[in-house]
Design a protein around this nucleic acid. Structure first.
Ligand SMILES: [Mn+2]
Ligand SMILES: [Mn+2]
Ligand SMILES: [Zn+2]
Ligand SMILES: [Zn+2]
Lengths: 138, 138
DNA sequence: ATCTTACAATGGACATTGTCTAAGTCAAGC
DNA sequence: GCTTGACTTAGACAATGTCCATTGTAAGAT
């Protein structure tokens, strides 16, 4: 985390209170916050921070490869600090809870040439959906 | 297609000009239109059709399982008449072209129990991304 | 063929998520 | 401590979608 701030400073980032607090909010495992959630948490510490700055900072962190954009539902994008180990997502259909998962195997090898339509495929995204133990009741 | 209209009538659908034209617009393979695209095409035949009716009709067709909602990008949802053979999608990162694909294998078996976090998984969605032959130049 | 009525269509207001801009502010180097 | 260009801010704007009150009509009943 302070690793992150160091890396960013090294890349010529001007270090502002706003950027620091956004970077601090985005820390941990299985963290997938929306921009508005990031804004709310950042505003607890820095009440005057604006939505525009949160969007700008998130966009910059994505460009730098420090966080990922995740779109598991059709609502708001979510921002994922787990950018360094590739993974996919498991989403609860009821409450929206999201977990990082690491399937074995490579879905690319499951797609025969005849099903590639001449595309140069560079990325595969897998989303598992189901009901989490919490929502399943007992 | 007239199969579809028959099925819908059988389900008690009141058959209106609007519903008929929406159903007719959604026909074919590799068809993944946005609601506004459906509206534009429907309006060629029925100029007074409203956006609300297109949204309502699409929603009903989805509920009835006659079409699928597909979210390959963060823009508008797309509506897919190919609801009867399960499939995944291959998307061009440049132009957005979408093809239906049928990978072999089952991605569920690639997810060990230890990575399921107690979820009851009911669905897996795979999106392949790349550059289509058209966008790749020669 | 006409009547009746519940269901459907319409236009427009509203909501959510995100982008953009003009003006003010400040981090960091001198 | 200045200076300056990068950063932040508030709010307007855009894209997509939902909701509601009103008007219209498909289809069964007479
Ligand atoms: Mn993740
Ligand atoms: Mn499809
Ligand atoms: Zn849940
Ligand atoms: Zn393309």
């Amino acid at each position: 985390m302070s690793d992150l701030l160091e890396r960013l400073r090294g890349r010529g980032w001007r270090m502002t209170a706003q950027r620091r607090v956004v970077a601090e909010v985005l820390d941990g495992d299985h963290v997938h916050l929306t921009a508005d959630e990031v804004h709310a948490r950042a505003a607890e510490r820095l009440p005057e921070i604006s939505r525009a700055t949160v969007y700008n900072t998130l966009g910059e962190l994505v460009s730098l490869g420090e966080i990922l954009e995740v779109s598991t539902d059709r609502r708001a994008k979510r921002y994922d600090p787990n950018a360094h180990r590739p993974h996919h997502h498991l989403v609860c259909a009821r409450c929206g809870a999201i977990r990082d998962v690491h399937p074995t195997g490579n879905p690319l090898s499951d797609l025969p040439d005849s099903e590639r339509f001449g595309f140069a495929i560079s990325d595969v995204e897998v989303t598992y959906r189901g009901v989490c133990p919490n929502c399943a009741g007992a």
